[in-house]
């Protein structure tokens, strides 16, 4: 069992979650994760890490300090990311997923990264 297994399990057990990945913030490499068949984990990891990195730098430059959570909502789903110590926990979910619950779970899991 990997060091991230409990964090991943805590997120993926929620309804509507299609993938949960542990990703290196700097280069978007997948460290660990689980996903439904058909989800392109490498693309999600790389692009979400890039978005998270950009958001962190932008909010830092704008004087808002470090970013701890990022949510990207789209027409047919949402991507959520919570980071700590250079590692980002990424969840890809359907629109029907409970955002409040997932946010709390991701922040809790990210606290243990």
């Amino acid at each position: 069992m990997s060091a991230f297994a409990s964090a991943l399990a805590a997120v993926t057990r929620h309804r509507g979650v299609m993938a949960c990945l542990v990703v290196a913030e700097e280069d978007g490499i997948v460290i660990d994760g689980s996903a439904q068949v058909g989800v392109d984990t490498a693309a999600f990891a790389a692009l979400t890490a890039s978005l998270y990195r950009k958001a962190s730098r932008a909010s830092g430059s704008a004087g808002f300090g470090q970013t701890s959570f990022c949510e990207l909502e789209a027409e047919r789903g949402r991507v959520l990311a919570a980071g700590r110590n250079g590692i980002v926990l990424v969840a890809v979910a359907e629109s029907r997923a409970n955002l409040g619950l997932l946010r709390v779970e991701l922040l809790k899991a990210a606290g243990g990264l």
């Binding site: 392109d40 693309a43 999600f44 692009l47 979400t48 890039s50 978005l51 950009k54 958001a55 932008a58 909010s59 430059s61 704008a62 004087g63 808002f64 300090g65 470090q66 970013t67 701890s68 959570f69 990022c70 949510e71 990207l72 909502e73 789209a74 027409e75 047919r76 789903g77 949402r78 991507v79 890809v92």
Partner: peptide, 30 residues
């Protein structure tokens, strides 16, 4: 500084297959 985040999201959405982005939320220290 922050408008670039929207550009990055647009770029990402082209690959995600989730449609166009409709909202971004960032929680920061401040």
């Amino acid at each position: 500084h922050l408008s670039g985040v929207g550009d990055e999201a647009t770029r990402a959405m082209r690959h995600f297959g989730l449609g166009a982005w409709t909202r971004i939320a960032l929680e920061t220290e401040a």
